[in-house]
Simulated scan of single mutants.
Amino acid sequence: MNALRRNVLKGAAGAGTVAVAVAAGLLKPTQVMAAWNEAAFEAKNVGDAMKGLGVSGPADSKDIAIKAPDIAENGAVVPVEVTSSIAGTTSIAIIAEKNATPLVGNFNLSGGAQGFVSTRIKMGQTALVRAVVKAGGKTYTSAKEVKVTIGGCGG
């Protein structure tokens, strides 16, 4: 049998199976993308972002480590790692304080996952990168200044 024909038939069978599952209500793709915090991500300042996250008066903690460059040569790609050694960490949010929309990411951790997040963010100018950690019903924060030489948010 021709290999191309075999691949086309396998692809058609797979697509047909997925279509039947969607039609039967077994798969609902709209449910996956519905769980984002619109108020927090569209906030224009840090206070509103924190309010959208449900955070008020977080305590400073030395148990949160932020690994980011002291000087970022290109603000369009700034590597950031956040490690929380606080027991029971359930979420880690990253905020770039002087960005037009400061909340960069909010990561929910479950099932005893390690409190670690690694990502790349955009920064328009030199600012504090703040990590907000929820653990044990309390919120904690830590910050590190990152100097940006070339802006990444349209600058």
Rank of each mutant, 00 (worst) to 15 (best):
I94L: 15
M123P: 12
A96K: 07
A96S: 14
K62C: 01
A76R: 11
I94N: 02
G88T: 01
A131H: 05
A100H: 09
S85P: 08
E73C: 00
G111N: 13
T90W: 04
T126G: 07
S110Q: 11
K67M: 06
G115R: 08
V117Y: 10
D70V: 05
S118L: 06
A127S: 14
K62P: 00
T89P: 05
I71S: 07
V82D: 04
G105E: 14
V80A: 01
A68Q: 10
A76P: 00
S61D: 05
P79Q: 07
A76M: 08
V80D: 02
A87F: 01
V129I: 12
M123Q: 10
G105Y: 06
K98H: 07
N99Y: 01
V77M: 08
T89G: 05
T83C: 00
D60H: 08
D63C: 00
I121E: 04
N74M: 10
T83N: 09
N106L: 15
G112L: 09
P102N: 06
N74G: 01
A72T: 06
A72H: 07
S61I: 06
T90D: 10
N106E: 14
T90L: 04
V77P: 00
E73G: 10
P69C: 04
A113F: 06
T119V: 12
L109H: 08
N99C: 01
P79N: 08
V132I: 15
T89S: 09
K62D: 09
Q114I: 15
A76L: 06
D70H: 06
G115S: 05
I95V: 15
V117P: 11
E73H: 11
V129E: 03
I86D: 07
K122C: 02
A87W: 00
E97Q: 13
T90R: 11
